[in-house]
């Protein structure tokens, strides 16, 4: 008896799902790791771009302009394949985390910078007027307020990153898309498997979206001057 694709899919579902869920786990790991690296890099970038020293500002701007103009796939390839050529061989997962981190950091630099600048100049001046140093003013008065402005775009970035991790499949990182490709190669059940994959991504991204939406709404009545 010749089973149609959907029947085969149903028959192998437990095995397929198990494999895909392993991929989900890895997707979450790469997303989380990349997010952390991107946030740290982004904060550094924002400090560079708002620095009083022109040299630092230029470096920051160069970083942002270059890494935002090149696709993340290219950056991953440079880190994974390119570095291997010159002797530095990285595993796929660390390579992916670093790649997404540096790329995301360029994007987040602008988000954090906008957050800092969104805090009214007068706040900084009031802090200076009571005798705080610029560093104290930034740390105690401006940054806490900037944080609130920054949360929604940060959340949206996280959602975008979750989806972008699919591209890490091309450097053999065993995340969801990679597992899916492998399974499709094995079973030829492309439609069924990719639809399942889409559902899995949705299951991850929709709750995040909801969270960001509610953050955005709370921000609208926020306590930022």
């Amino acid at each position: 008896m010749n089973l149609g694709p959907w029947e085969r899919f149903a028959a192998q579902f437990p095995y397929l799902m198990e494999t895909l869920l392993l991929g989900v786990e890895m997707t979450i790991i790469v997303t989380f790791g990349g997010f952390v690296v991107a946030t740290a890099t982004g904060m550094l970038g924002a400090l560079l771009r708002t620095s009083r020293l022109m040299v630092l500002r230029v470096i920051g701007t160069l970083y942002v302009d270059v890494f935002r103009a090149v696709p993340v796939l290219t950056q991953l390839f440079i880190i994974y394949f390119g570095l291997a050529e010159i002797g530095l061989k990285l595993d796929p997962i660390p390579a992916a985390i670093i790649g997404f981190g540096i790329h995301g950091g360029a994007y987040l630099t602008e988000v954090f910078r906008a957050g800092i600048e969104a805090v009214h100049r007068g706040q900084n001046e009031a802090a200076l007027a009571i005798g705080m140093t610029p560093a104290q003013a930034l740390r105690i008065i401006v940054l806490p307020q900037a944080m609130r402005v920054v949360l929604p775009p940060l959340g949206n970035y996280a959602i975008g990153l979750l989806k972008d991790t699919s591209v890490a499949s091309s450097v053999a990182a065993p995340e969801l898309s990679f597992r899916a490709h492998m399974l499709v190669d094995q079973t030829y059940l492309s439609t069924q498997i990719y639809l399942t994959v889409a559902a899995l991504y949705l299951a991850m991204s929709l709750p995040l979206s909801r969270l960001v939406h509610s953050l955005e709404r709370r921000m609208a009545r926020g306590r930022v001057a």
Partner: peptide, 18 residues
């Protein structure tokens, strides 16, 4: 907006083909 572009491309390219 909730799924990666890559997955969508795969569905259109391979899925439609099958």
């Amino acid at each position: 907006r909730g799924t990666p572009a890559l997955t969508q491309l795969f569905l259109i390219y391979f899925g439609l083909a099958s």
